[in-house]
């Protein structure tokens, strides 16, 4: 079966595109599936750590999806969660060490939140839901899509909070001289409220996602 399917799917088939695209909106890991919020909000005070965090998570999701997908037929089901945890923390330690060596300032800003990628539900969620039962290439794409879908929300929140909270973007001054930074924006509370507003707008446009509580 694996052979025939391989021939049917070109490198970027329509199915692959779908894997990449749905996490951006309809199945966005943060605002629809409510996964990985823990680390999402704390690093969004400024744009730069938000971008680095987005990249780190994307790399970890992609790589762990790939590794688990390659190993999927050898993993005994009884210890699969612990195997997944080991693979994820292995990758996160590497990311952490690399950041400390080559992006020292950012790694200082991210502090414990790099380590918390391990318990980021997106990573474990994608491993369980996708990589355990799919071939490596689609798994990588799925990881990439979800990582980017997560990243886009982080970047939006980081953009708004840095622009209004510090009057800068990527540490460059944007707002005119007289602008007094809005202190509320840099507080944790505002990240939550901004996310609530993003969800509001998103669900206003996608009626099928609305909840009837």
């Amino acid at each position: 079966m694996s052979n025939t399917e391989k021939q049917k799917d070109p490198l970027f088939g329509p199915r692959d595109m779908k894997l990449l695209k749905t996490p951006f909106s309809k199945e966005n890991p943060i605002i629809v599936q409510v996964l990985g919020i823990c680390s999402a909000l704390a690093v969004t005070v400024k744009l730069q750590p938000a971008v680095v965090m987005a990249i780190s998570v994307t790399v970890v999701v992609m790589m762990s999806n790939l590794i688990i997908s390659l190993m999927r037929n050898t993993i005994p089901p009884r210890i699969r969660i612990i195997v997944q945890l080991v693979v994820v923390s292995f990758l996160v330690i590497i990311v952490d060490q690399v950041l400390k060596a080559f992006a020292y300032d950012v790694s200082k800003q991210l502090s414990v939140y790099v380590g918390l990628i391990i318990t980021n539900c997106i990573v474990m969620g994608r491993l369980e839901a996708f990589a355990m039962s799919n071939k490596p290439w689609p798994s990588v794409l799925d990881g990439l899509g979800n990582g980017l879908g997560y990243g886009i929300i982080l970047i939006i929140v980081g953009f708004v909070r840095e622009l209004f909270g510090s009057g800068t973007l990527w540490d460059e001054r944007i707002m005119p001289e007289g602008y007094i930074p809005n202190g509320l924006m840099v507080m944790p509370a505002m990240a939550l409220i901004l996310l609530g507003i993003i969800i509001w707008i998103h669900r206003g446009r996608n009626k099928e996602l609305q909840e009837n509580e």
Partner: peptide
Amino acid sequence: IPPALKGLGIAFIITGLMAM
């Protein structure tokens, strides 16, 4: 509550208010 805000959206906003 406005339908689009029901559930998750309002939960976030309330958490924000509690955080404040």
